[in-house]
Amino acid sequence: MKRKFEWIEVVIGLIIVPAMILIVNNIEDGYVIGVFLGLLSAFLAAIFTSLNKKYIVDGKERIISFLELGGAWIFLSLLLPIYHMWQPIEAFWPSNMDWVYLLILALLCTTLAYVMAMKALNYISAFASALTINLEPVYGIFLAVFLLKEHKELNLEFYLGVVIIIAAVTIYPLLMRRRKRKLI
């Protein structure tokens, strides 16, 4: 991005690493692959956000979003026949009401949210955007705890890790604002 190296971003990233270790420290062996895939996903999302930040110019957020989401749809559609080799189509096909929910999720929760996130890249750094996006699993866990009462297997280390991550994410904009005031 040809901008000055921000030590605050490196420090925040380094604070999150031990917090992630606390969160995944006591997982069962069957979930290790999922953790590594999640870390890979976060890494790729950070690169993706950085590239989006680089190429967002002249209000082309909708066009870029259409190309990216359309490309993902085509790729997944091509993978669907391979998936059906292992899973019969009858178990996969949505009911009529499911189609309504899928449309709501696709249009509002994915497309609209994605275009808005792309538009936000005009005002925030790629790091701040990636940090926020990668908090999605934390939101999901909180929803599972509060709405579904799914917290029986979570331990103190898990909660400590979550608190560290939320503290790091919360302190980042405060540190950046303080730093900008010193520069002015």
Rank of each mutant, 00 (worst) to 15 (best):
K2P: 04
R3K: 06
E6M: 10
E6K: 07
V10R: 01
V11D: 00
I12W: 01
I15E: 02
I16Q: 03
V17E: 01
A19I: 10
A19K: 04
I23C: 12
V24M: 10
N25F: 14
G30I: 01
G30R: 03
Y31M: 08
V32N: 07
I33S: 13
G34C: 04
F36Y: 15
F36C: 09
G38N: 09
L39W: 14
S41Y: 09
S41N: 14
A42H: 13
A42S: 15
L44P: 02
I47A: 12
L51P: 02
L51A: 04
L51S: 09
Y55K: 02
I56Q: 05
D58L: 07
K60I: 15
E61D: 04
E61Y: 11
E61L: 06
L67F: 11
E68C: 06
L69V: 07
A72I: 11
I74V: 14
L76G: 07
S77V: 04
P81I: 10
I82T: 12
Y83Q: 02
M85H: 14
M85G: 10
Q87A: 04
I89D: 02
S95L: 01
N96V: 05
N96Y: 04
M97R: 08
L102M: 11
L103I: 15
I104F: 12
L105Y: 11
L105T: 12
A106K: 06
L108M: 13
L108I: 14
T110N: 13
T111M: 03
M116I: 14
A117N: 13
M118S: 04
M118D: 01
A120D: 02
A120I: 09
Y123D: 03
F127I: 05
A128K: 06
A130I: 07
L135K: 03
E136T: 15
E136D: 11
P137H: 12
P137N: 06
V138P: 09
Y139D: 01
G140T: 10
G140S: 08
I141T: 13
I141K: 00
F142I: 09
L143C: 09
L147E: 05
L147F: 15
L148A: 13
K149A: 13
E150T: 06
H151P: 00
H151Y: 09
K152G: 08
E153K: 02
L154Q: 08
L154F: 08
N155M: 01
E157P: 01
E157F: 09
Y159M: 04
L160E: 03
G161F: 12
V162I: 15
V162P: 02
V163S: 14
A167R: 01
A168R: 02
A168F: 05
V169Q: 00
T170I: 08
Y172F: 07
P173L: 09
P173R: 07
L174W: 13
L174D: 03
R177I: 13
R177P: 04
R177W: 10
R177Q: 09
R179W: 13
K180S: 14
K180A: 14
K182R: 15
K182E: 12
I184R: 10
